[in-house]
Amino acid sequence: MPKRALSLSRVAIYATLLAACAVYLIPLLIMLLTSFKTPDDIRTGNLLSWPELFTAIGWIKAWDSVGGYFWNSVKITIPAVLISTLLGALNGYVLAMWRFRGSQLFFGLLLFGCFLPFQVVLLPASFTLGQLGLANTTSGLVLVHVVYGLAFTTLFFRNYYVSIPEALVSAARLDGAGFFTIFGRILLPMSVPIIMVCLIWQFTQIWNDFLFGVVFASGDTQPITVALNNLVNTSTGAKEYNVDMAAAMIAGLPTLLVYILAGKYFLRGLTAGAVKG
């Protein structure tokens, strides 16, 4: 139907979509272009102009100043994401399949965790980390992120497992499987979509976190978000916008990559269980 594709409503739809794309993509384009310009080029040219000379100097300088913190973020994010996802899956499994007296109340209270603003837990968490001797350490930040993320991951997995027939667990019990065998052999292999949702959600949350990073880490243990802030907000010397942009790109790339690689699972997992069949 090549002729119908050009109808007025089609054109309107594509124009709207293109405009929406532009709104999101132009800032990214500006960042990319700026990161490859020389400081002189930035001062003389306008925002959208093509670089006179592509140079990686901004990226190299940016990596020199935030590269170490990038690895800090990796060391915080990966264990925190994996631990919170695994614990969330276990919690969800228990809350959906092994109900105990008061489990509904327990789940309800846990849900409060999803509505707690970061700021509320700052002081208690800082006190607890101090008591545990984990203040200003990477493990301390991992712990905070795991605890804070558990409410979300538990909610995801519990709601996913509720839609799975309990007879499956009963059948496995009669077949002689125990608590962890049923979890590992029957339920986890069925959980790929929701695991993906959890990984993406937690990765984005933890990688992009600034507040916990700035409060609970200092100096060498700071995550990249805090390092980026320090770099951009520095008031000494001339503003090197190319370095700022490159550093911001470095800080944003991992989440972008995760979305590109696992994005299709994200949509699939979020809608799983919403429609039966």
């Binding site: 027939p165 007879a167 499956l168 009963s170 059948a171 496995a172 019990r173 009669l174 077949d175 002689g176 499987a177 125990g178 029957i186 292999p189 069925m190």
Partner: peptide
Amino acid sequence: PKDRDIAMVFQSYALYPT
């Protein structure tokens, strides 16, 4: 259940999907 040596066929069949 596993020690009772009883097998059950469920209404929903409850086959392991994976």
